[in-house]
């Protein structure tokens, strides 16, 4: 398995480095949290330095961490699978003695290695631009964030993969992916920290995967959670990984019988 992962990593890294400019453009397309950052900082300054307990630098820290979390959990596999199923190229993947899941997974993992240096650069510039911004208070938070963001990525990838598998029944799952995208923007903490959401919605969000992909990882990195809260977040993330893995397994088994192998 390590040999297969290494070969896929090497090939995809060569591929991704060819498309590094495109990756930067995609990165810029996900700038919404940074735009929201300027909106909220403006509001805080207009209200005498803080809004809802958040100062300008706290907004900057949150939105930079949220943006970075969004960048590290990007998944386009639903779109790719939809295309592959409709064009018949998914058949080529099915003929290989490796589950297509792992090919797509490695493609996404590899892309992070090309994307991250640019993300890091933007975050550093962001921190320097807003005086007093402290993104990381303790090094331990970076370590916990590392695990939290990996789990967040796996949740996001599994959700996207399940949406992609829906094209065995629908033949085109991109509309579903768009729906997920809109919901995630509203509910994952991209527009605002969840502290600004109504209490009833916050309560509801605890039972959904969205905040565990962006909001909570950002809170961990910026040192807003204590050790017990961080442990709870990781545990809930693991639970979501388990839930979506089971959903994926069921959809894979049932969906393959529906697959029409069209276009080939």
């Amino acid at each position: 398995m390590i040999r297969k992962a290494k070969a896929l990593f090497t090939a995809w890294l060569s591929h991704m480095t060819i498309y590094r400019a495109e990756i930067i453009i995609w990165m810029l397309a996900g700038m919404l949290p940074l735009i929201m950052m300027t909106v909220w900082i403006g509001k805080a300054q207009a209200e005498g330095g803080s809004t809802g307990g958040f100062s300008s630098s706290q907004f900057a820290a949150y939105f930079l961490a949220a943006w970075m979390s969004g960048q590290m959990t990007v998944a386009w596999v639903a779109w790719d699978m939809s295309f592959a199923v409709r064009q018949g190229t998914f058949s080529v993947k099915l003929l290989r003695p490796i589950n297509p899941f792992w090919e797509y997974f490695m493609q996404h993992v590899t892309e992070r290695f090309v994307r991250y240096p640019f993300v890091f650069l933007v975050v550093v510039v962001g921190v320097l631009l807003v005086p007093g911004t402290v993104l990381v208070k303790q090094l331990e938070h970076v370590v916990v964030y590392f695990f939290a963001i990996i789990l967040a990525f796996i949740i996001r990838f599994l959700i996207a993969y399940c949406i992609g598998l829906a094209c065995f029944w629908l033949e085109n799952a991109t509309a579903l992916d768009e729906l997920y995208f809109v919901l995630s923007i509203m509910l994952a903490g991209t527009f605002a920290p969840l502290e600004f959401y109504p209490a009833w919605l916050r309560g509801l969000l605890e039972y959904l995967p969205f905040p565990y992909i962006i909001y909570y990882p950002a809170q961990i990195l910026t040192g807003q959670l204590d050790w017990t809260q961080m442990a709870r977040v990781l545990a809930v993330q693991l639970l979501w990984v388990g839930v979506f893995f089971v959903v994926y397994q069921i959809m894979w088994r049932l969906g393959r019988k529906q697959y029409g192998a069209v276009g080939a």
Partner: peptide, 14 residues
């Protein structure tokens, strides 16, 4: 976008 040889190496591993 890659030379065929790269795909062959992936197949070798898979």
């Amino acid at each position: 976008d890659l030379p065929a040889l790269d795909s062959f190496l992936v197949n070798q591993a898979i």
